[in-house]
Structure formats: structure tokens, C-alpha cells
Design a protein around this nucleic acid. Structure first.
Length: 463
RNA sequence: UCCCCGAUAGCUCAAUGGUAGAGCGAGCGGCUGUUAACCGCUAGGUUCUAGGUUCGAGUCCUAGUCGGGGAGCCA
């Protein structure tokens, strides 16, 4: 006898085999015809396996007829073609074993649909629902495609550190890492004496692996990082998490155009793989979550992304005739309403904005000849907004140092980063893609807290 | 952090300042190669918390907690 997954048992190729299946009961329907229908799910696919349990089984009256939703069971039986609509195959059980019961008076998951808000309060049980199973399978597929995409192109996977001592990477508030006793913080001359802390200096959870990725791009060529990222910002939106996963490719001898080409090919690959390999899950999102998701994604695959300079974008926004809550003017950052207008209304597809005013971007972005703009790029997608932020990096030592002074950064603190420009500097570029925002974009899930196993948001870290 | 909205049965929601209800779920019974099955019956409530107004508060007021949406920050 062969152990089989639900995904395998639902294929017609399995017909005729005697198999063992293990999983959780989604529902039970008893028939007076002398059997019960059990629907088994083991997470390997969206659909359930229908099990026909005949009344002749020795534990039929004592156990099978009482099996509650949520119970874990082990089934053995023969896979047969199903005579009824709804499933290609079914298991005719010769043995049904209750592994662990679930008190129906207390088990929170019901056969009916639940709100995502409620499911968030039982995040330990929500992967047992159709939606979260599908989210997790698509998330897994996207993760695999990320590696496939880069590995096929010869990129090295670099493991950037989680703990960092760079306290001003320019990406917002950081979580502090310390082993000091917070009840008795050592002090020297009034200030906290970090000399006594674990690293003998202040340290933090990373907000980006970019600076470290640059080290390896400037020695090994094409690299990417893929790992957790932490932002201690008090952000309360459906698009922000305090802990999220980010992919950061970094490429030597790439300019901004190469960077944009790569970003576009990358996003398209993730979409293509999800549609192709998670078709059943994607169909589910189409039916239950977002009626237009598949058409939208197929549209993204078909067309080139719009590439628009910041300056051109400002012109479009000024000429749009729209009433803006925030005024549009050259030199200020675009507001959500502006970005949404561009990708959702004006172009109705992904837009790559580039060449932003230097005043609103980070110190490491390459200065253009005009002296006013930098080689930055943001990829905006309908529904989610910014999904990628990146740039060509400033490889000229003197320009970089001047920029740092302009922004009141201490070049000494970045001595090793500057060394990369001091010795054998090369033009290079890279970007960061938010994994969860990508999962949102591909599944149509509205809230980022519903596309990560255990969401971390201000005031919330229960699971 | 700011603005807006919300919190009533296990879940989703209703209830003019005057006896707290429905659907689904659950339990029991019926029916059926069933498909979010169907039909009947039953149980199920500190109306988020603490104050206040009122003869009387689920309903009005104040504060707080939690949740959602929008904004900012960004991925």
C-alpha cells in the first residue's frame, strides 16, 4: 500500500491503487444508503478528497458517523472514479482511523466562510481554510520562482546578515538588538554605555540587505539576497508589516535600464509561474477573492511596463484635470493618490517611475548629469502600489562622499562601503522586492496580514 | 502617529431610549450517491471595558481597549 497525498489521489492516474491518506476532515455527509462521505484535506492542494466510508466498517456507528469537522484522520482504501460530479476520483475506504478529534462545540472553524479579520484572531488554525492554504501554496511557489529566476541567470544567493550595526541605512526606524538589562542599563557620562553591550556598539535588525549585497556584487558579479527584513515604524495599513521578506538582487556592470529590464522580467516570471503551476489556487482567488485577478495578471504578462521619468509623471499628473488632495509639484514625493492614478487609471498597468529628484531619495543613488535627479526607480502595480524600489548605485567615490556630506552622514561610518568605490569600483544597480506585496498582487488578497504566516504589526505578535 | 467607521449568540449581522432577534454553525431527529446538501426541533447572551445622562441604555455622552478603512513612512 502506497501513502498518497490528496493532490495525487485526485488525479485519474491514481484510479485502481490501494492507498493510505492522512489529513484533516473538512466536512462529513451521512447517507442512509449505508455510507458517509468524508472530505479530507491535507494541504497539498485546494480541493478535498472525497472518501466514501461504508456502514460495514467496524467503527462506523461508534466513530465515523460522529467524526467532527477539523478532526485528523487516517484512511486506507481504493481510489476509484467518482460517479458523481464535483470530483474526478474518490476513495472507497476499508479503514477509517480517527487520529485526533476536534470538539465541535469549541472548534472555531466552521464549514461556512469566515471573515479574514476573525481568522486573524486564530492565525494558528487559519491555514486549515481554503483561502490560507491557497495563499501559502502560492507564496511557496513565488519563493521557488524567485530562486529559479535568479539561479537560472547565474545569480549567487547571498545570505545577508539579520543583525547589523549600520544605524542609518536610510530606510526608517530600526529594531534595537541588545543583551543589556533594560532594568539596569549601564551608563557612561549620562549616555547608554553600549561598550558593555553584546557587540560593544549599538546594533539593530536589518532594514535591508542592500549594502551587504553590494559587497558581493562588487566581487562576484550577480547576486541576490532573500530574507526577513524589519521595520519598527508605527505603520498601520493593509500594505505594511514590521517583519516581512524581501528579495534584493544586486548586479555589477548593470545600469538603470538593465535594472528595469530585470525587474520587469522578474515580476512577469513570478506571475507566469503562479498561473501555470498553481492554477487551481488561482482559480479559487478569482472566484472568491478578486473577480478580475487572472485577467489582470494575464494583462500584465502581455504588455510592456510603462517606463516614465518622474518629471514626465509630474506633467501627466498636472494635466490630468484630477482634484488632488495633495498638490503635485516637481521636487516633492508622489502621494499614494498620484501613484494609484498612474498605475490604476491612466495606464492601467504596471508603471516604472525613474529619475527622481535627489532630495527625496537615498544617498547611495547615482546622480544624473543634470545634478538634480538620481537614477532611482519604483515599480508601481495596480492595487498594491510600490512593489519594487531600486536604483543604479553611485560608484564615483567623490560624488558619493559629497552626497553623504550633503545629507549629514558620516563617511567614516561607511568606510567599507566607500572602499568598494575606492578599489576597483564598477557601475552597479539593484532593487528590493517585497515578497508579501508580491503575494498580494498575485493573489488579490487585500490585506498584507493575510499573506504571511504570522503577521507582525504594531501591538500585535500573538502567534 | 493623525482622520473616519465599527464592537450584540461560536461566526455574519438585525433591533425608533421601553420584553435582545435572524441566518449560518452546534446538539437531537428525519431524508438523501451526497457536494457550503436538504427539512424539523432544541440549546445558546456580563450587548467590548469603566464611568455618566435617564423612571428606563444594546441604543445617548465621556474615556479607554480592540478591529477595519484612509493618510504618512515604505517593500
Amino acid at each position: 500500500m502506497e501513502k498518497m497525498t490528496a493532490a495525487q489521489a485526485r488525479q485519474v492516474e491514481a484510479i485502481g491503487k490501494h492507498v493510505r491518506l492522512e489529513g484533516w476532515l473538512r466536512t462529513r455527509r451521512d447517507s442512509k444508503g449505508g455510507f458517509s462521505f468524508l472530505e479530507l484535506n491535507d494541504g497539498t492542494c485546494l480541493g478535498n478528497v472525497q472518501v466514501v466510508a461504508p456502514a460495514a466498517l467496524p467503527n462506523y456507528e461508534s466513530e465515523i458517523k460522529k467524526l467532527p469537522v477539523g478532526a485528523s484522520v487516517r484512511i486506507t482504501g481504493e481510489v476509484k472514479q467518482s460517479p458523481a460530479k464535483g470530483q474526478p476520483t474518490e476513495i472507497h475506504a476499508d479503514r477509517v482511523e480517527l487520529v485526533g478529534t476536534a470538539d465541535p462545540e469549541k472548534y472555531p472553524l466552521q464549514k461556512k466562510g469566515h471573515s479574514f479579520e476573525f481568522l486573524r484572531t486564530i492565525a494558528h488554525l487559519r491555514p486549515r481554510t481554503n483561502t490560507f492554504g491557497a495563499v501559502m501554496r502560492v507564496r511557496n511557489r513565488i519563493s521557488k520562482s524567485i530562486h529559479d529566476f535568479f539561479q537560472e541567470r547565474g545569480f549567487l544567493y547571498v545570505h545577508a546578515p539579520i543583525i547589523t550595526a549600520s544605524d542609518c541605512e536610510g530606510a526608517g526606524q530600526m529594531f534595537k538588538v541588545t543583551t543589556l538589562d533594560l532594568n539596569k542599563v549601564p551608563r557612561a557620562e549620562g549616555a547608554v554605555d553600549y561598550g558593555q553591550d553584546f557587540f560593544h556598539r549599538p546594533s539593530f535588525l536589518t532594514v535591508s540587505g542592500q549594502l551587504e549585497a553590494e559587497i558581493f556584487a562588487c566581487s562576484l558579479g550577480l547576486v541576490y539576497t532573500f530574507g526577513p527584513t524589519f521595520r519598527a515604524e508605527n505603520s498601520n495599513t493593509p500594505r505594511h508589516l514590521a517583519e516581512f521578506w524581501m528579495v534584493e538582487p544586486e548586479m555589477a556592470f548593470y545600469d538603470l535600464n538593465d535594472n528595469m529590464d530585470l525587474a520587469e522580467a522578474f515580476i512577469k516570471r513570478l506571475i507566469k509561474d503562479a498561473l501555470e503551476h498553481q492554477a487551481e489556487d488561482m482559480q479559487f482567488f478569482q472566484e472568491r477573492v478578486d473577480k478580475e485577478i487572472i485577467a489582470r495578471l494575464e494583462g500584465v504578462l502581455k504588455h510592456d511596463f510603462v517606463r516614465l521619468s518622474y518629471t514626465e509623471a509630474i506633467e501627466i499628473l498636472l494635466k490630468s484635470g484630477q482634484q488632488w488632495q495633495f498638490p503635485v509639484s516637481w521636487g516633492t514625493d508622489l502621494q499614494s493618490e498620484h501613484e494609484r492614478y498612474l498605475s490604476e487609471q491612466h495606464f492601467k498597468k504596471p508603471v516604472i517611475l525613474f529619475d527622481y529628484p535627489k532630495g527625496i531619495k537615498s544617498f547611495y543613488m547615482r546622480l544624473n548629469e543634470d545634478g538634480k535627479t538620481v537614477r532611482a526607480m519604483d515599480v508601481l502595480v495596480p492595487g498594491v502600489g510600490e512593489i519594487i524600489g531600486g536604483s543604479q548605485r553611485e560608484e564615483r567615490l567623490d560624488v558619493l562622499e559629497a552626497r553623504m556630506k550633503e545629507m549629514n552622514l558620516d563617511p567614516e561610518a561607511y568606510w567599507w562601503y566607500l572602499d568598494l568605490r575606492r578599489y576597483g569600483t564598477v557601475p552597479h544597480a539593484g532593487f528590493g522586492l517585497g515578497l508579501e506585496r508580491t503575494v498580494q498582487f498575485i493573489t488579490g488578497m487585500a490585506n498584507i496580514r493575510d499573506v504571511i504566516p504570522c503577521p507582525r504589526t504594531p501591538g500585535s505578535a500573538e502567534f
